[in-house]
């Protein structure tokens, strides 16, 4: 069964790689990560520190020193800073991978030769997950390259010193890739449910916007504070770590401000984020498989 799913995954790639969409999204991903990096670089050239972000409750969260331009910090920082954009890109890729089969009616002939439907959907999910990981890797490598260029242009790395271990980069890479899976599951569910690429992308992005904007406005309520950890995108953020924890994790910022208790709390949050994300992945995928397996497969919708 595993061999069959992997063979189907290979054939999914056979046809997907001949579309423009995955290559365009890969290019956008690389450009976004490059943008993040070179904005940091430009800020560093302008002054000595780079403002990373703003926390609405405390004001400026962190001013990132020059270490962010050196490897492996630069790659870790690039991964963490761009994961929100990458999630959007993976939604845009995932929805058509499943929904175009309905639109073009190609699910019908595939069904004829692969009667166990879940294998077919599993192959699509595996492919998108692999592509998500691949795109993240390419983006990371591009930042690595830029980091080397920046190092040279800053007169031998004026004041830049690497402080994070390379192991941290691998760990962050794995976390960021895992953080894509709930979005893949969400977009797949909407694709199977609506059988439309446009609707699936719209609903998935709409859901992300609702979480980031509407739920953000509810943070003042005590009841929401209790459940906020179970909102999907927030759970993913918890898994990746808060901004302060991110900075500390790559050796940037004031470690001491976190304190032991705060570090333990951050670890607990990350664990909860992992488990909540896992629950989303399992539940959304189970729903997708159930619908895909049960529902009649109609002809082309012409979309």
């Amino acid at each position: 069964m595993t061999a069959e799913v992997l063979a189907l995954t290979r054939w999914e790639w056979y046809k997907l790689r001949r579309r423009r969409l995955p290559w365009i999204l890969l290019l956008v991903n690389v450009m976004l990560m490059q943008f993040t990096f070179w904005v940091s670089y430009a800020s560093y050239r302008a002054g000595d520190e780079i403002t990373l972000g703003v926390d609405p409750s405390t004001g400026i969260v962190g001013a990132v020193p020059a270490e962010v331009l050196a490897l492996p910090n630069s790659a870790v920082f690039g991964l963490l800073a761009s994961h929100g954009f990458v999630a959007i890109l993976i939604i845009i890729l995932t929805a058509p991978v499943t929904a175009t089969g309905y639109g073009w009616g190609t699910t019908r002939p595939v069904r004829r030769v692969s009667d166990t439907r879940w294998l077919f959907l599993a192959a699509k999910l595996i492919l998108v997950a692999l592509l998500g990981a691949g795109a993240t890797l390419v983006g990371t490598l591009s930042v690595t390259l830029s980091s080397q260029v920046a190092y040279v242009t800053l007169e031998g790395g004026r004041g830049i010193a690497a402080s994070a271990a390379w192991g941290e980069l691998i760990r962050t890479f794995a976390k960021v890739v895992y953080g894509l899976f709930p979005w893949i599951a969400l977009a797949t569910l909407f694709a199977v449910l609506t059988r439309s690429t446009r609707l699936a992308v719209g609903l998935s992005l709409g859901y992300a916007v609702v979480e980031s904007i509407v739920f953000e406005s509810l943070t003042g309520f005590e009841w929401f504070e209790r459940v906020s950890g179970f909102v999907m995108s927030w759970a993913i953020d918890d898994w990746l770590g808060s901004t302060e924890a991110q900075l500390a994790s790559i050796g940037i910022g004031d470690d001491s401000s976190l304190g032991t208790a705060a570090a333990v709390a951050a670890q607990a949050e990350a664990l909860r984020g992992f488990l909540v994300s896992l629950a989303y992945i399992v539940i959304l995928n189970c729903l997708s498989f159930w619908i895909f397996q049960r529902r009649d497969i109609a002809g082309a919708k012409g979309e």
């Binding site: 054939w11 073009w104 019908r108 692969s114 082309a300």
Partner: peptide, 25 residues
């Protein structure tokens, strides 16, 4: 089987469409 209008991937050639379905088999 052919059911209704034949459905294939519009951006692939006829040969590649057949190769895909043969591969899936």
């Amino acid at each position: 089987a052919i059911v209704e209008t034949p459905a294939f991937y519009p951006y692939l050639s006829g040969r590649r469409n057949l190769a895909y379905f043969q591969g899936v088999m």
